[in-house]
């Protein structure tokens, strides 16, 4: 090997002579900076809690408001000092329930089909459809609900029984909006089930359908549960569809054919006007937002906890 001849003497001057730890100011500064940036995300959560909590506290301290009224009453008429959250919660519950009733069966079916049956080519066509649905802004869904689904429903059910604004239309469209979320999370859960389970089922003479519904599906159930919970959280927090399609009357009702205002839609409508800062009405919005935040936070934490547990199960 003549190549090495050139290399006979190694220039050792390039070697560090001292192994002593250097003060690398740049490195430390960068690490500190990155930590601060990472910590900033905590600061966002803390700010949310403080901001919402602070204004909500002002609201509850107002002589016009009592906690009992807030949590028990079914009337929300700020003009006459009635602040019963149930008037808004009822609409949130109704629209979310409709959305979940639409999204869960459809989303789950879609997930099963995509993960257990669909050929490569079918997936290449079907998956983008769901991705496009997931990417459509909610305000567009709102347009669709008000100007397509509602007229359709009025045609089908009769315009004397269902109004221009109604919770049914908003809920249905919200279900379509959440469908891709449920489907993609469920698909993840299904594909996380080890193939050995499927093979075990096939080896015992199960058809693909029996394997997927009786072996794989139950094994993925907790992951699917997590998907449903995230779906609920999304439905509860959704604003634009309900703001556009379900009406602007805060009324305590669970009748999907009627118009009623959800918590989110109420916040959007009231704050959209020029509400003076510091009034009870203004502060009441923060109390509603705080409730929303806490409910969705709890749902998300539960869902994440389930997903983590679920992952551990198969690792």
């Amino acid at each position: 090997m003549q190549a090495a001849a050139k290399q006979e003497t190694v220039n050792t001057t390039f070697r560090p002579k001292i192994l002593k730890r250097k003060l690398r100011l740049g490195e430390s500064a960068i690490e500190a900076g990155l930590f601060i940036v990472g910590f900033l995300t905590i600061f966002v959560t803390v700010s949310i809690v403080i901001v919402l909590g602070d204004q909500a506290l002002l609201f509850f301290l107002d002589p016009e408001v009592t906690l009992a009224e807030f949590f028990m009453s079914t009337k929300w008429v700020p003009a006459i000092g009635e602040f019963g959250i149930w008037a808004l919660v009822s609409a949130t519950l109704t629209t979310s329930a409709i959305a979940i009733l639409v999204a869960v069966p459809l989303g789950l079916s879609a997930a099963i089909y995509l993960s257990e049956y669909a050929s490569h080519r079918a997936r290449a066509v079907l998956k983008p459809v769901l991705e496009i649905l997931a990417g459509i802004p909610t305000v567009v869904y709102g347009y669709f609900a008000l100007l397509f689904v509602t007229p359709l429903l009025r045609e089908l059910i009769g315009s004397e029984r269902i109004g221009v604004y109604n919770m049914l239309s908003a809920g249905l469209v919200m279900g379509i909006m959440i469908l891709p979320l449920i489907s993609s999370m469920s698909e993840d859960a299904l594909s996380a089930v080890p193939n050995s389970l499927r093979e075990a089922a096939y080896a015992m003479g199960a058809t693909p359908f029996e394997a997927s519904t009786q072996v794989v599906l139950p094994a993925a159930l907790s992951g699917i549960g997590a998907a449903v919970i995230v779906g609920i959280s999304r439905a509860v927090g959704e604003t634009m569809i309900v703001a556009i399609a379900s009406g602007a009357t805060s009324e305590f009702t669970f009748n999907p054919l009627k118009a009623a205002e959800t918590m989110t839609a109420h916040i959007a409508r009231i704050s959209g006007g020029d509400l003076p800062y510091g009034t009870v009405d203004y502060n009441s919005l923060f109390a509603i937002a705080l409730m929303l935040f806490l409910v969705t936070l709890a749902l998300n934490i539960v869902s994440q906890w389930i997903v983590t547990k679920f992952r551990e199960q198969y690792e």
């Binding site: 070697r15 560090p16 192994l19 002593k20």
Partner: peptide, 11 residues
């Protein structure tokens, strides 16, 4: 304690 692992890896 005073040794810099980066310097070690250079050697």
């Amino acid at each position: 304690k005073e040794i810099d692992p980066v310097e070690v890896r250079r050697r």
